[in-house]
Amino acid sequence: MSKNIILIGPMGAGKSTIGLLLADVIGCEFRDSDKEVEDKAGANIPWIFDVEGESGFREREFQAIEYLTSEKNIVIATGGGAVIRKENRDLLSKYGCIVYLKTSVEQQLLRTHKDANRPLLQQDDPKKVLTQLLKQREPLYIELADLIVDTNANTPKQIVEKITEFKQTYDLSNPEC
């Protein structure tokens, strides 16, 4: 593998879980853009949102994506909103094979309801927030994706198998990788 595998999708889609498993299976490093933001800031994402607002977080996220996409042969999990910034989309498209991990709002709620580290969900109606976010972002996920995998209908192992099978075909059809 010479091009990175980049996982996109909404929060709770399983990007970090799948990313760790995938990296282990194919023998490369796993990196998470949200973790990169936190490490560089020396603070967690809710603190960044509180102090700098979403725009401050998005700038930090861009810097993390710019750095991560300069690496080679890694699996990258992005934050759910990474696709909203055009510069991020351009970097992701240029430097990676992009996999959209698709999931339903119901699954997102099940997977995130106890996670206080998700500032956008600290609202009275998280289902409404997730529905609105998916409506805004899903067209971007689909537009960027080289592969779409439904995480509702597959186990993590099945998802990793689908990605590795696709990646072999992708590399053969994109020799510049």
Results as ranks from 00 to 15, higher is better:
47 W>H: 12
102 K>L: 06
163 I>A: 11
26 I>W: 05
111 R>Q: 08
20 L>S: 12
164 T>F: 00
36 E>W: 13
55 S>V: 05
167 K>L: 14
74 I>N: 06
36 E>Y: 12
145 A>E: 00
26 I>L: 08
7 L>D: 07
34 D>T: 09
68 L>Y: 13
52 E>R: 10
53 G>T: 09
108 Q>L: 11
31 R>G: 02
117 N>A: 04
36 E>V: 10
78 T>Y: 02
72 K>A: 03
60 R>M: 05
35 K>P: 00
2 S>K: 14
101 L>A: 11
175 P>K: 01
160 V>A: 05
128 K>W: 11
51 V>S: 04
85 R>A: 08
144 L>E: 03
100 Y>P: 08
5 I>D: 00
66 E>L: 15
40 K>I: 03
164 T>Y: 00
164 T>N: 01
32 D>A: 12
20 L>Y: 13
177 C>K: 07
140 L>T: 04
13 A>G: 11
55 S>Q: 03
113 H>L: 03
95 Y>A: 08
70 S>V: 09
91 L>Q: 13
90 D>I: 14
78 T>L: 02
59 E>Q: 07
52 E>P: 04
70 S>A: 14
89 R>T: 04
155 T>E: 07
87 E>A: 14
8 I>M: 05
83 V>T: 11
51 V>C: 02
138 E>N: 14
114 K>L: 13
154 N>Q: 05
65 I>G: 03
76 I>S: 00
56 G>A: 02
37 V>M: 06
66 E>P: 00
89 R>K: 02
98 I>F: 03
163 I>F: 13
